[in-house]
């Protein structure tokens, strides 16, 4: 069997098993302990969460899977924490390895990055759980709260420092547009994710125009 087909077979198999396993805890609580939420309330809740998260899932799928390639994509949608960890991590590794995005080499590097970073996160969360009691005062210390509140600006600032310097031409248009959007529309924090597909599309369109005009030759 060709490598591609093997990846998809293994990916579908493991993702399918993971899918089934996710349902174990709520099923156990409902069947074994006999606690059923009222059906109408449950349906309203499911409706609400789906209205918000199906579009986000579609957007993440369309935006992130081309960056990662097939095998890393199967893994990343099982292990989670995409925007705040896996995607920046995979892209940094692809860049450090000096392989071309969308190549076979990039897919290998992305898979290594996603697998290792999810193992590291799992270990850290495990340690955190074991040390929950002694760690709590430290992690909840008043003086440290600003640091944890600003973790996303710190992460994306660092990424920007690297990438904008390297490919500023691709950065200019989306950043100007997105700043205008944030200035004009009051977008509540926590829902920025909905902008990612919009900006992805606008960014690709502007890149296409620049590429056609021969403005991106040296990128």
């Amino acid at each position: 069997m060709a490598y591609e087909d093997r990846v998809h077979r293994l990916g579908r198999l493991t993702a399918g098993i993971a899918f089934a396993m996710l349902f174990l805890p709520p099923t156990l609580v409902s069947l074994y302990f006999g606690i059923f939420p009222p059906v109408n309330k449950l349906l309203i809740g499911i409706g609400t969460v789906c209205v918000i998260y199906i579009p986000i899932a579609v957007a993440e799928f369309l935006t992130y899977t081309p960056m990662l390639g097939s095998s890393a994509s199967y893994l990343v949608f099982v292990t989670g924490n995409l925007t705040n960890l896996k995607i920046p991590c995979a892209l940094t590794c692809i860049e450090n390895a000096k392989v071309k995005p969308q190549s076979d080499e990039a897919e290998v590097i992305a898979t290594i990055a996603v697998a290792i970073s999810s193992i590291v996160t799992t270990i850290i969360v495990f340690i955190g759980m074991i040390l929950l009691v002694p760690l709590q005062p430290l992690l909840e210390a008043e003086v440290l709260q600003p640091a944890f509140m600003q973790i996303l600006p710190a992460l994306f600032g660092a990424l920007a420092g690297y990438w904008i310097l390297k490919q500023w031409k691709l950065a200019v248009v989306p950043i100007i547009i997105v700043v205008l959007i944030f200035v004009i529309f009051p977008i509540p924090s926590g829902t920025e994710g909905a902008l990612i597909p919009v900006m992805g599309l606008l960014s690709v369109l502007s890149a296409k125009v620049m590429y056609k005009k021969g403005f991106l030759k040296e990128v």
């Binding site: 994306f156 990424l159 990438w163 950043i175 997105v178 920025e192 890149a207």
Partner: peptide
């Protein structure tokens, strides 16, 4: 294309 998608995402969190 891949880089442009990444800048789209980056711009949201910088914006």
């Amino acid at each position: 294309l891949v880089n442009a998608l990444f800048f789209g995402m980056l711009s949201v969190f910088l914006g």
